[in-house]
Design a protein around this nucleic acid. Structure first.
Lengths: 226, 226
DNA sequence: TATATTTGCGTATTCCATACACATTCTATT
DNA sequence: AATAGAATGTGTATGGAATACGCAAATATA
């Protein structure tokens, strides 16, 4: 690469993260509200520039920590967005990540130097005028999440340590926007051998309590299951 | 992004393509032999730097045309390689693409300014000392190809216009390195409704001629089939 | 104690994956 | 011309998974 060629100048590398969780029986995504130019006061996916001494995943986790205070979440690269005009400032490539975390005991930092707020949004309430091309990135991430939750075991990253089968089913239903038969869902998931009954039960539900299950430790995320 | 921050300096964006084909009943991948530093005389995946006025896919197709003369192939992004030390020259991110083409009537350019040769390699004969981290990229691309050929319809891009069911089966067998039962493979693939019998037959094979099939035009690539 | 609600378990049926037998159609050989 | 060799195309039997749906059990609340 001839570094003196002006065609190679001013290229920036960004990382951007679509972090999903399940909260109050709904799938939600984390957005941050910008303070500065460009797109002041617009919501965006947490994102930032990559330093030249770190790889993209490291940069993304650093940005997430700096901008939202969130750490220790499951993450997977899903697509690169490289339209040369995607940023009005300069040519800025974005490496997109899907993040997944369970919302139990999760605190987020609300305000930083560059952001004035950080919030979980229902998927149906994500603003269409996100900064940059982030709405397009959000849609692509959601599409990828749908495939992943069918084909792999990432649902493990969405759930708390103990959960009931109806709760597990609800996660599938809200992400895929589709109903399943209770009895068949149970049969199918149990025979996968990914979860085990803890013997404990939920309580105070006003009906027959469901058993609490947990994922079997040894089984990894991102294992093909369907 | 504060462009004066030295942490953001000297970042290059590369694209790299693992182009697969089926030739002589074998899966092959296209490699180019380098002329210049770094890695003189080493084989590499076709790759090159992205101009700041084009997106990555455009850059990749331009590089493929310049370095190999190949155009009009199916392509899909699969992973970004961002280890800061992956190039000895400077920090250079690589956006990886899988390319797929059928080798019928395919000519390749053998020599360019930067490459002294371009060749199809059997997967078992790809040198382990490819330039940069290209061997790692090759392995990742192959793994992705295996998933894609099971889950989607990309096999369409590997085959010529007319093909027999045994030929189709052979493609699956060489890519997945696994044998299938003729009769069950036929039954399964036909019921997918992706291909149709042309009524024509192959000839001069020394045995009962197989019917020639073609893909139904309207069905796209990258459709989930299994 | 009765009721509403939801969980957990069971069964019947249909569809798909797999295993394997046999007939067909071509080329090559004698 | 007859036959052998080789691979294709068709069919069938079986086991397991997906789907549809009936019913009993357990809890909070009235």
């Amino acid at each position: 690469m001839d570094i003196s060629n002006p065609l190679y100048r001013n290229q920036g590398i960004h990382v951007v993260c679509a972090l999903f969780t399940v909260k109050d029986g709904e799938v939600k995504i984390l957005l941050a509200k910008r303070s500065n130019n460009p797109y002041p006061d617009k919501w965006m996916l947490p994102s930032g520039a990559v330093y030249n001494n770190e790889d993209c995943e490291t940069a993304m986790k650093r940005e997430m920590l700096e901008k939202t205070g969130i750490t220790n979440f499951y993450v997977e690269q899903f697509h690169v967005f490289s339209n040369p005009n995607r940023s009005p400032v300069m040519r800025m490539l974005a490496v997109g990540y899907i993040g997944i975390i369970n919302s139990e005991n999760l605190k987020i930092k609300k305000k930083t130097e560059k952001t004035q707020d950080v919030e979980w949004f229902k998927l149906s309430e994500v603003p269409e005028d996100l900064a940059y091309d982030h709405h397009e990135i959000f849609l692509y991430a959601l599409k990828t999440l749908k495939v992943k939750i069918i084909r792999t075991n990432i649902v493990k990253a969405l759930l708390p340590k103990y959960f009931t089968l109806p709760e597990l089913q609800k996660v599938y239903e809200v992400i895929l926007n589709k109903k399943f038969d209770r009895r068949n869902f149970r049969k199918k998931f149990l025979q996968l051998g990914l979860i085990e009954n803890t013997g404990m039960k939920e309580s105070n539900k006003g009906h027959k309590p469901a058993n609490l299950y947990k994922f079997i430790q040894s089984k990894d995320y991102d294992v093909d299951i369907f």
